[in-house]
Nucleic acid binder design. Structure first.
Length: 131
RNA sequence: UUCCAUAAACCGGCCAUCGCUUUCCUUCGGGAAUGAGGAAAGUCCGGACAGCAUAGAGCGUCGCACCGGUGAAUAGCCGGGUCCGCCUUGGCGGAACAGACAGUGCCACAGAAAAUAACCGUCCCGCACCUGCGGGGUAAGGGUGAAAAUGUGGGGUAAGAGCCCACGUCCCGCCACAGUAAUGUUCCGGGAGGGUAAACCUUGCGUGCUGAAAUGCCACGUAAAUCCCUGGUCCUGGUGUCACCGUUUACGGUGUAGCCAGGAGAUGAAUGACUCGUUGAUCGUUCCGUAAGGGACACGGGGAAGGGUAGGCAGAUUGAUCCCCAUGGGUAACCGUGGGGACAGAUAAAUGAUGGCCUCGCUUUCAGCAAUGAGAGCCAGACAGAAUCCGGCUUACCGUUUAUGGUAUUCA
RNA sequence: GGCCCGUUGGUCAAGGGGUUAAGACGCCUCCCUUUCACGGAGGAAUCACGAGUUCGAAUCUCGUACGGGCUA
C-alpha cells in the first residue's frame, strides 16, 4: 500500500516562473492567520497538484522562526491534502497552491492544523465550481 | 558553604507512528545508510578560488603604523618595550604607541594677547612741571582660560629677561655598554617658541578591480531585427585566375580579381582613472561628381530602447581541515613526529511533526533544628538554523561542571 | 550571497567640533474675545544606545540595536 501523506520534491512548487505568475494572477483565500493563493492552469501534460509555503522575512526576522513556521505549514498541508489531490488528479486542470503565514506571533501547531484544513476545504469547493 | 565576576568545556537520551534531503540497492511495492553550530549570526578583517583578452612601470586612490616571533595572510595571536591609569612597590588593566622642527588650517566664551604676546604694572627718555601726555624698553607680578611661553637659587641690569652660571626636567644628536630589536643606562654636545594629525597633510610600508547572483558548458527561446553616435590603407614578397604580347602544344614577359605571409600607419576599444608600454578588432563593395567632396550597402566599435530565457551540469563540498592520545622543540602563540578518529550539501531551499518513557533542572506540599527524605506539577525549557570554502574578530546565550579572583558566614 | 545609507520634540526635518540645538505642522498652558476661530506669549529633545579622541562631541572614530535602499 503506497504512502499517501507524502510531500516529496515532485509535489512542491519549485519553478520560479510559475510562482511569479501565481502571485501575479492567483486568487486568494484568507483564513486568519493563513493566506492561501491558488491558480488553475494547463501548462503541464498531466493534471497535478503542487504547493509551497512561505513567511515574510519582515514579520519574522530570525531564520529559526521562519524555518519553524514553514515546517508547521508543510506538516499541516501534508496530512490534509489527500482529498484535494484526488480531486485534482481526476479533473482537467493543474492546481498551484501557496500558503503564507500572515500572523504576527509564533503559531501553535494544533491551531494551524485546523485552519489549514479549513482553507483546503474551501479551495476544493472553488476547484469544483470552476469549469 | 553562599553569592558575584571572568575564562573554558558541555549544552539531553531512548522508543513508536507519519514525513523530508542526499547516496546506494531494488523484484519498482519499497528497503538500507545519512543529516546544523559554538557561535552556522553580524559581515568587521584576512585569504583560497574565479572572472575582468593581457607582462610590466610611474601617478593617483585606499589601507596600515613601537620591536621580535608565529601564521597562507597588511588579519589575528604570543612574548617584550614605552607611555597612561589604579591599588600601591609589585602586580593588574588600557593604548588608533610614525611625524606638530615640512607646510596649511582651527583653538568658542573669557582674556591685553591663543602664537613672530605689552591691558594693568614696572623702568628709561622728551614735554608739561599740581594730577598727566607722547615715544621706547621689559615676560618678574596681576587677573582670564582647558591651555599663557623650562623649575629653583644666584649673578646681572635703568628695570628685566636662559642674558649668564649651578643644580634639575624635557627634546634632539653622537660615542660606549646591555639587548636579535624596540629600548634602557652613563658621559659629552646642541636646544627648549602651546594644543589638535579619530583636521587637511607629510614620511615609511603595502595595495589593480569585482565577488559564487563570480565563472564555464549544455538545453530552450528571441531579433542575424530597430534607432543614435563613430571609424577607415598603403607597401613588400609569394601564390594564382583572367586578359594581352612573344611564341614551338612546352615556356617566358606585362597588367590584374582573389588568397596567404610580413611590415608600417589610421581609427576605435580594453584594467577606477591618467601617462607610457603591451595586446589586439577593423580598414570591404558601390553610386553621384571633371575634381574637391558627398551618399548608400556591408563590416568593426560604443550607446539607447526593446525582446527572449531564468531549466540542467560543473564550480560544490576532504581541506593552509578539525579533534583525541603519546612524544620532541619553544617562556608562549605555535611548529614537528607517530597512532587513532571525524567531516551535512539544500537551491521557494532537507535536517521535522505527534505521542510515550527516563534522567538534568525549576516550582511547590509534607516530615525534620538541620543535612536530607517522600510526593505532586511543569517537563529539556538559552542564544540560535548551514548556503563556495577556510583563518580570525565581535556580539548573543538557560543550565551544569571546572579553574582563578573577590565578598559574606561557620569551624579549627 | 554581496554592497551602501540613515536614526535629532508627536510628525516632517536644518545644523558636519564652540554659548541656552534653527524652522514648519500638531499638542499643552496662559493672554485676547461674551464664546469659538484668527492673533500673541510660553512649554515639552539624555540628538537611538555604549565606549573612545578632544579643553569641549548631535557633529569625528569604533562597537551594538533598529530602519531603509541597491544588486540577477
Amino acid at each position: 500500500m503506497p504512502a499517501i501523506h507524502t510531500y516529496g520534491k515532485t509535489e512542491r512548487l519549485k519553478s520560479r516562473k510559475r510562482i511569479e505568475s501565481l502571485f501575479k494572477t492567483g486568487k486568494r483565500i484568507q483564513v486568519h492567520p493563513l493566506l492561501l493563493i491558488y491558480r488553475l492552469h494547463e501548462e503541464l501534460p498531466q493534471p497535478t497538484l503542487q504547493a509551497g509555503v512561505g513567511v515574510r522575512s519582515k514579520q519574522f526576522r530570525k531564520a529559526v522562526d521562519r524555518n519553524r513556521i514553514k515546517r508547521i505549514l508543510r506538516e499541516a498541508y501534508r496530512l490534509q491534502k489527500e482529498p484535494l489531490r484526488a480531486r485534482v488528479l481526476g479533473g482537467q486542470k493543474s492546481l498551484d497552491l501557496f500558503i503564507m503565514y500572515t500572523g504576527q506571533e509564533m503559531p501553535v501547531y494544533a491551531d494551524i492544523f485546523t485552519r489549514a484544513g479549513e482553507a483546503l476545504r474551501k479551495t476544493m469547493e472553488r476547484y469544483g465550481e470552476e469549469p
